[in-house]
């Protein structure tokens, strides 16, 4: 069975042949498009390391079949910065030491990006913690991550105010 899907990945349109319907969005990104920033921590939707934005919403790429996201607009960690200019979420993660080993980091950052876009967490640390609870971290970088997300939220809001 040979299928072909079209995707926009980090702003670039592409037609991707899928020779096997079992290929998940995560394995498509990692093994076929060689966008390896998105990580596989559990492959079962239980850790959040594979979080990407699909049509602006954060999901676990490991639990989506590539064929079923045909036509989607996908944003991965590789598409967040503008060249050397980091996105505010990325910059905040560095500043607040929101990672140690860095393996869960792309997922944490994409999840935080989704969380900020959802606009429901306000500046409430408890809501941010709850809203980030789909992303596990084993090193124990939680404190820095939550500080970073709160800070990034403020920065993004400021940016938007300036634009508006």
């Amino acid at each position: 069975m040979s299928l072909s899907i079209s995707l926009t990945v980090n702003g670039a349109s592409k037609v991707v042949p899928i020779e096997d319907p079992r290929v998940t969005l995560l394995d498509l990104l990692r093994e076929r498009l060689v966008l390896t920033g998105t990580k596989k921590g559990c492959d079962r939707g239980q850790c959040g390391a594979c979080t990407v934005l699909v049509d602006g919403r954060r999901i676990n790429a490991c639990l989506a079949l590539a064929v079923s996201v045909d036509g989607a607009d996908i944003l991965t960690i590789e598409g967040l910065a503008k060249g050397d200019r980091l996105d505010p979420v990325q910059a905040a993660f560095i500043e607040h030491d929101g990672f140690q080993c860095g393996f869960c980091t792309p997922g944490q950052i994409m999840s935080a990006t989704g969380l900020i876009r959802e606009g429901e967490a306000d500046g409430d640390p408890e809501r941010v913690r709850e809203g980030m609870s789909g992303n596990l971290c084993r090193c124990g970088a939680h404190a820095g991550i939550i500080e970073a997300v709160l800070d990034a939220q403020r920065r993004v809001a400021e940016q938007e105010r300036r634009i508006a």
Partner: peptide
């Protein structure tokens, strides 16, 4: 972290 940029950009 000196490896921060690499880690936050994937």
């Amino acid at each position: 972290r000196r490896d921060g940029f690499l880690k936050v950009t994937g």
